[in-house]
Simulated assay, not measured.
Amino acid sequence: MINEPVPTLYEWAGGAQAFERLTEAFYAKVKQDELVGPLFAHMDPDHPRYVAMWLGEVFGGPDRYTRERGGYPHMLAKHLGKAITEQQRRRWVDLLMDAADEAGLPGDPEFRAAFAGYVEWGTRLALHNSQPGAAVVKDAPVPRWGWGVAPPYRP
């Protein structure tokens, strides 16, 4: 039996192109949504690409978001004072999960559990950080998310 290295979530998903498909599909949905759409009314046209860079780095890809966009402090600054509601957070999660299906991200339980784990964690952190007067960690690295306890199954 050959002991192959476990791929990163980034590799398993299909690399940069997979995350670009995901964010394009996602923000097309966001723009049309009455609940979260207003949060993105003045979105930079390159925003989907930047979020794809963020997600790529989080899931084990190159550190482009850190090098080109300023890493965690830059991302945090985009959320401060937005006063995201729990309903908006949940809608954001639902739209992202729908976009993951539409973009063809892997559907295996191991990948989706790891992906959903990050999305749940990240959106709850964004919800907290977006509240006026929230105590936030201002300088942290971009999180690196892995498989957790269930690496991909290879028959």
Rank of each mutant, 00 (worst) to 15 (best):
M1Q: 03
I2F: 13
I2C: 01
P7Y: 00
W12F: 00
A13Q: 02
G15D: 00
A16F: 02
A16W: 00
F19H: 07
L22R: 00
L22M: 04
T23I: 00
V30L: 05
K31M: 02
P38Y: 09
L39R: 11
H42M: 11
H42I: 07
D44M: 03
Y50L: 14
V51T: 10
A52E: 05
M53G: 03
G56T: 09
G56F: 14
V58C: 10
G60W: 10
P62H: 06
D63S: 15
E68R: 04
E68Y: 15
R69P: 04
Y72R: 13
P73R: 15
H74R: 09
M75R: 07
H79N: 13
G81A: 12
K82M: 07
A83R: 15
I84A: 09
T85E: 13
E86H: 11
Q88A: 13
R89D: 02
M97H: 15
A100C: 08
D101H: 14
G104P: 01
G104Y: 01
L105N: 03
G107Q: 13
D108F: 08
A116L: 08
A116H: 10
V119G: 03
E120I: 11
R124W: 00
L125N: 13
N129C: 10
G133I: 03
A134M: 06
A135N: 06
A135Y: 06
K138C: 04
D139W: 15
V142S: 10
R144N: 03
W147S: 02
P152H: 09
